[in-house]
């Protein structure tokens, strides 16, 4: 396909009902979109949930998919947000195998990226990185010069700026 590949971030506000996640996932998979990250959590009103979906795929057709998700009975709204009109953040936990003698080098990187050490043993540490996805990615690139044993990222969460609804 000649379409441009892009990453997109959608925010979906849904009634908290069984099956709603499966229904939404089906709309994307049927059209060949790969869900790269997905965050689901209770919304301010506990009867509803908020989903932030990170996607890659052709921009062509995405608008129609947004409408198809929007028309699902349990979906209140589905919107695509550009990065400049919304705050987008994520969190990563990285477990690094590191002996005592090189620990200071790791801590330097941790400090530089304003990360936090959340677990420390003789041979390993877990570092928490938060922020914009690019910043988290940059940290992960740097820390890979040590032995990364495990990596967990939450995926993006998003909130529209100012008075705009998310």
């Amino acid at each position: 396909m000649s379409f441009e590949q892009h990453t997109h971030t959608l925010s979906v506000y849904v009634a908290n009902r069984p099956g709603v996640l499966a229904r939404i996932a089906q709309v994307f998979s049927r059209r060949g979109y790969n869900i790269e990250s997905l965050v689901v959590s209770p919304a301010n009103d506990g009867d509803f949930s908020r989903m932030t979906i990170g996607l890659s795929g052709a921009s062509e057709g995405l608008e129609q998919i947004v409408r198809q998700v929007g028309k699902l009975v349990d979906v209140i709204s589905c919107m695509e947000h550009a990065d400049d009109t919304a705050v987008v953040r994520e969190l990563a936990l990285v477990k690094v195998r590191v002996e005592a003698e090189r620990r200071m080098e790791v801590l330097q990187i941790v400090e530089h990226f304003a990360c936090k050490t959340v677990d420390l043993t003789d041979t390993s540490m877990i570092i928490m990185s938060t922020g914009a996805s690019e910043k988290v990615a940059a940290f992960i690139r740097m820390i890979r010069s040590f032995e990364v044993v495990e990596l967990v990222r939450t995926g993006k969460v998003l909130m529209a700026r100012g008075d705009q609804p998310t």
Partner: peptide, 14 residues
């Protein structure tokens, strides 16, 4: 059946 029919219904309930 809830799962099997999901792509071909307007809505469904269990």
């Amino acid at each position: 059946v809830f799962g099997l029919t999901m792509p071909v219904v307007k809505h469904s309930y269990l």
